[in-house]
């Protein structure tokens, strides 16, 4: 059953939606830095000192790999479904959008971004700070230093634009793959999908831009 085109898309879409949930939680955590660096550091400490964190991280990695593996396989099949390309191919303007036709590119951008993101922040310099006698990682300091460089901020904003575009098609597309279709609500869902993509894109760009402007 797992080899059926429709089922593969449904699993990839479901994994994508789960990743959306993670991204929303991640964004909420990021925005704590705007409150204060202590709140942010305490939140980060609460997360990483939780004994279940490794299991949760492994689950997240598993969901990510499912999404990545399935879309790579689907894409491979899609490419081989048309061995000879057209000399000229033109979109009608009544179907595909910029976001929908660049899903592969936005996806690859995100993959490259994630490698640097995890390497530079999760496995970045381990500064320490004490609150009420408890020593925790000063992630806030690392973030402020990291986003002191305009190049890094630019890269992040670019990657988050790709992320927003990826979501603006991917979110509603997952529902279409599950079979959700309604004369009235599908139109609303497609609009919601774009709003969701734009909000996530802006939301994740706030912290790098804010951190950079603090240092200027």
């Amino acid at each position: 059953m797992i080899n059926v085109s429709i089922i593969k898309k449904q699993i990839a879409g479901f994994a994508g939606l789960l990743l959306c949930l993670f991204a929303m939680a991640h964004l909420a955590g990021n925005l704590l830095m705007l409150v204060s660096s202590e709140v942010f550091n305490r939140y980060a400490h609460a997360l990483t000192s939780n004994p279940f964190i490794y299991g949760i991280e492994l689950t997240l990695l598993f969901i990510f790999l499912i999404h990545l593996g399935l879309v790579m396989r689907l894409q491979w099949e899609n490419r081989s479904a048309r061995p000879e390309k057209y000399a000229m191919q033109k979109r009608t303007g009544r179907g595909a959008t910029l976001a929908s036709s660049t899903m592969v590119f936005s996806g690859i951008t995100l993959l490259v971004y994630l490698v640097f993101h995890i390497l530079h922040l999760k496995f970045g310099t381990d500064y320490r700070v004490s609150y009420d006698g408890i020593e925790v990682r000063d992630l806030s300091r690392l973030v402020m230093e990291y986003f002191g460089s305009p190049g890094t901020v630019g890269f992040y904003v670019l990657a988050m634009t790709a992320f927003g575009m990826h979501l603006s098609h991917g979110f509603w597309s997952a529902f279409q793959s599950f079979g959700f279709s309604h004369a009235k609500y599908t139109v609303k869902l497609r609009r919601l999908s774009i709003v969701f993509g734009v909000l996530m894109s802006i939301g994740f760009s706030i912290l790098p831009l804010w951190a950079y402007l603090q240092g200027v």
Binding site: S5, I6, K8, K9, Q10, L74, E77, N78, A81, R82, R91, T92, G93, R94, G95, A96, T97, S100, S101, M103, H169, W172, S173, Q176, S177, F178, G179, F180, S181, A183, T186
Partner: peptide, 27 residues
């Protein structure tokens, strides 16, 4: 190939078949 929900098919279909049929097929 596999559908990626871009609706170019619906746009060129001379008979205006809707992609809501694809959603129904999926479910």
């Amino acid at each position: 190939g596999n559908c990626t929900n871009e609706a170019e098919c619906q746009a060129v279909c001379p008979k205006g078949i809707s992609i809501s049929n694809i959603a129904r097929l999926n479910r």
